[in-house]
Design a binder for these strands. Structure first.
Lengths: 214, 214
DNA sequence: AGACTACCAGACAGATCTGTCTACGGACAG
DNA sequence: CTGTCCGTAGACAGATCTGTCTGGTAGTCT
């Protein structure tokens, strides 16, 4: 797994040659990661983030000229982490693409079990920012990346209709992410996994009836 | 200093024939319904709601002693509206429970197509309020009501495992609600419907393998 | 030594948000 | 006529949030 190279590791470091430069930035980002996810980024104020990361206000505004920049950086980090977990879960299921399509749902199970789980950070982010904003656009981009990856897996698995299968699986994934917090019972994730297994299996069979669709 | 589109209070009262104290309450709730859904209830301020509903501040606080009360009333209204749409879509599909299980997804399609669609109001609400709050609890209750209704339909349809089928379908429904805004393409809803049809059909067939399944 | 860099501490301005409170007016029953 | 209910209009307090700005400390490079 490779961390996304496109995620803003400030060229200032290379410019100054200072190895410790940007240490404060990481602390801020780590705190934001925690607070934004736990409370939403409208409820988590700059002052709180600054206080909890033990950083001066001027330092904060040096790295993140506006709160929006921090939110975007947060989403970038969430994307990297969640994508990494999805890929890891898929690979843990073996080399067969079909098995990986099911295995990736183990990342959902793990996420739902985690303490303080509050659903999909991107869905939550989109709920807090209207369409057309950069935050919203970043969310759309993330979802499309995941969809494209699953579609690729479905194609390599030999699915009858990779597009359709990928869409069904992302629906299950998003549904599990969204309702994992809401459904009182914790088995939404395992239900998503078994449903995914059923869909994958059905999509790999040869078409039974070429007849019309009611 | 002229309020935009000033709604003459006397005229409005005369139009409705007065007689109903609490006319202002409905106006407030209607405005909140619109603004809360469009912006989230953290971004939509009391002052804006008061101004846009053409109501005095004291009147607002008479009916809703705190913003939380308005949010709860809003969720109550959303619950009634969305549940009504789900039931209507199901009934429009005929009398057969199996057909209704698929037909209810037409409510999702309609919702996604609606202008200004911003996903599930409850999921968005939960994203803005931490677990343990009344808002969050109301969201959980709503989701469980929907789940119970679908489970009942699945049972009457003669599904092999009504619990499992209901859970799969709610996952698809929530996934469609959540990603209907995010997926660039608008066909998430129709994909959810066709996947639901597939799952319902598979669940009605006689069990192929009676082998013990953990 | 001087310059530069990274950082801390915190006051401050300006906006915004929730909720309270005063002042006023029309409708209607007793 | 008077009291009560419903409503408008808007000032106000107090909290909070974003973003700026000043001043001070420590390490590093030349």
């Amino acid at each position: 797994m490779t961390p996304p190279a496109a995620t803003a590791p400030q060229a200032a470091r290379a410019a100054t040659g200072n190895a410790t430069a940007g240490n404060a930035r990481e602390k801020i980002l780590a705190t934001a990661f925690r607070l934004f996810y736990a409370q939403g980024f409208r409820a988590a104020g700059i002052d709180t983030i600054i206080a909890e990361s033990g950083v001066a206000k001027a330092t904060f505004y040096k790295y993140f000229p506006a709160k929006d920049e921090l939110i975007l950086a947060y989403l970038e980090k969430v994307d990297a982490v969640w994508t990494g977990q999805l890929h890891a879960a898929a690979e843990a299921a073996g080399d067969e693409p079909a098995a990986q399509l099911v295995g990736l749902f183990d990342a959902l199970t793990t996420a739902c079990r985690r303490d303080g789980y509050r659903g999909c950070a991107f869905i939550n982010a989109a709920a807090e920012s209207p369409a057309g904003t950069r935050v919203h656009d970043r969310t759309v981009a993330h979802k499309q990346q995941v969809l494209a990856w699953i579609r690729d897996l479905a194609g390599r698995a030999g699915a009858r209709d990779p597009d359709q299968l990928a869409r069904s699986l992302t629906l299950l994934l998003d549904g599990g992410l969204a309702s994992g917090v809401l459904d009182g019972s914790p088995d939404a994730a395992s239900a998503a996994r078994s449903t995914a297994a059923q869909l994958v299996a059905a999509s790999l069979k040869t078409p039974p009836a070429p007849g019309g669709n009611p």
